[in-house]
Amino acid sequence: MKMSKNNWYRRFLLATKGIFLQNPILTLGLALPFAVVACTSLQTAVGLSIGALMALIPAALLLPYVMKWIPQQLQWLDYPICALLSAVFLMPTRLITGSLSPALMDSVGVYFSLFCVSSLLFTVKEKCKEKEPVRALLTLIRMWLGVVLVLVLMGCIREVLGYGTIWNKPLTFMKIRFSGVMVSGLGFILLGFLAALGKKLHRTILSVQFWLRDGWPKLKAKVAGIFEKNEKEPKKIMDEKELIHEEESAEQLVEQITETVLGKEQDNK
């Protein structure tokens, strides 16, 4: 299947690399416990995204400057130092959000702080290692948005199915409560279906593009062909020569008839 490399779709996917193309949760499989176990409502999803952001910022922006002071043999210390830095950032965030909305922090629980030791942090650190600050920030924002997208989707679906509410406001049309969706097993299943949905969406867009390139012109030609044929038939007018020929043949016929009639009369006579 060949498409041009400068396709608008491909450019869009590469521009938003962490959100759709290489989503950290759906494609790379990082930070799974947060999506599967902890993210059971929209409030929890928002709380988790705040925690993720606060944990990822030091890894992307501050760590290169810190590592410059560490000698060459001890470069493997970047993993614990990264964790420490994000913990240092997370502590005040936890206190501040706890005082702003205690309900949110209650629903999130310990998972807020767990971001400082998750695989998501270390992957972002590796990706932002060699880049300038602006590029690193953009990479960070893209990956964070990918995480937020999945968390919000999961939280919304599980809350609507499980409790029938959205941000603690009840919905009227949900009468059945599937309270089992909170269990992490079904969370895994839901995550799998989301990944499949994403892949199906990607394939659909690709196949629509191919159809637009190959199939639509064929369809247009076919439809136009049908219309042209229909126009030709009523336009079939007899040529002038045929008309003249017909008139002549009519005269000949008249002559033949008169001859036979006259001939009979003569015979009769």
Partner: peptide
């Protein structure tokens, strides 16, 4: 598995 799901939910 279907029975397990509904036992969990209802």
């Amino acid at each position: 598995a279907g029975l397990a799901f509904v036992t969990l939910c209802f």
